[in-house]
Design a binder for these strands. Structure first.
Lengths: 224, 224
DNA sequence: TGTACATCAGTGAACGCGCGTTCACTGATGTAC
DNA sequence: TGTACATCAGTGAACGCGCGTTCACTGATGTAC
């Protein structure tokens, strides 16, 4: 999972096992090539020929390493989910004096900004559809994420820092929605609102989200 | 646009122009059939044969009425956007003593709950992709919606009911994300969180969203 | 140390299926005289 | 009022393209003797 340069090799390879150069193997190249294509166009609209071309490899390699298109897609999703989960683990393992909720949002948006295809694929192809990947997502990601984060949130509540009159399930929906939506809306709203996902958008938007979530939009003191 | 019963007619029709029964025409039937299919499976993964079968009509009718698949999709999107915009217009035209922000969210979530395919298609196929539909969405929907709503929000700000220290573009992203996400996440998070989009979910979630947006999650008085 | 060979990583041509689209045709309806 | 005919709403078979997938094959590498 050390993904650095996507080699767009157009020079023809000779048949047969290639000499063992220091380059990445076809498996990794295919995942790197597929991720942004799946995110941009959707899985159904992305051909394996397009993926293979971008990876500088033969379409037959998809069957070789992943069995079929669904296998490649699953590998892409696993790669993304692993990154998010790793970041979450590092967050709860580290200790800091800063408030937990802003740190959580900052971490979450940090990983997603680094690989925008993660939220894009999650929303468009995993979360919205009732596929076999759904179980995988629930059991191997959602469950573990809740397991990691929930105790810390409980701690905040016990400490009297978070309101008790909110439905936790709804809050979860709201927060995740707030965090994921900008990545999906980027192509339309980006030009309209002059947004750029790269650079320090992640940090700025994380700060905004944390503040909005904690204090809301209403002027303090007005309780009508 | 009076869409009531999707006739799943499997009985064979005779060739030639059919007798003018009171039934809906193929154009309307195709839009009604395509909308939920496009929302569930995505446009690329939905075949015109599947749409035509569900509409009880021949695939050739797509070319007849919409020229091609893209034309049918555009008609579906226009149908959805028109519904949302109509509701928005009715909202700003009506007058009420209730606070504006909760009414706005309630109206918005109301239309979307009635036709969940609207937010699903918008997120997965319009907003996330850089297609010709993007311009249509921006010019014929987003621009008009902002034109309708922005003055009312300004009014709230001038009245001192909304905070001034928030970036409006970010707030827009957050609110729209909060409202749309539940519809997209329903297939995964629904069973997990025991959510049902129909029934009074719309109202309950609208109330939650309005409260969260206005006051945030932090216990009032804590300004650390 | 040399050598035979199984394995591994990959090629590239081909196949068949299903897709979007086309096209010649049909029969009920509306209309002009 | 009857009739001829253009139009309108639709059929269903067919076409060709591009897709996912398969398959026979290849040559470098690692390993056992």
């Amino acid at each position: 999972m050390t993904e650095k340069s996507t080699r767009h090799s157009s020079r023809r390879r000779k048949p047969g096992r290639p000499p063992d150069s220091g380059e990445q193997d076809a498996r990794t190249l295919l995942i790197q090539a597929a991720a942004p294509l799946f995110a941009e166009r959707g899985v159904a609209a992305t051909s394996l020929r397009a993926v293979a071309l971008r990876a500088g490899v033969t379409p037959a390699m998809v069957a070789y390493y992943f069995q079929d298109k669904a296998g490649l897609f699953e590998a892409v999703v696993r790669t993304g989910l692993t990154r998010v989960l790793t970041a979450m683990r590092e967050l709860v393992d580290s200790d800091s004096d800063a408030e937990f909720v802003p740190r959580l949002i900052r971490t979450y948006l940090g990983v997603l900004s680094a690989d925008p295809w993660i939220p894009q694929i999650l929303i468009r192809e995993v979360v919205s559809r009732d596929t076999p990947l759904r179980r995988m997502f629930q059991e191997e990601f959602a469950a573990k994420a809740v397991e990691l984060i929930a105790p810390r949130i409980q701690l905040e509540i016990s400490a009297g820092r978070l309101r008790r009159d909110l439905e936790p399930r709804f809050v979860l929906l709201s927060v995740v929605g707030m965090c994921l939506f900008p990545f999906v809306a980027q192509p339309v709203l980006g030009p309209l609102l002059n947004l750029h996902l790269d650079g320090d958008f992640g940090e700025q938007f994380a700060d905004h989200t944390a503040r909005l979530l904690l204090a809301g939009v209403r002027v303090p003191g007005d309780d009508s």
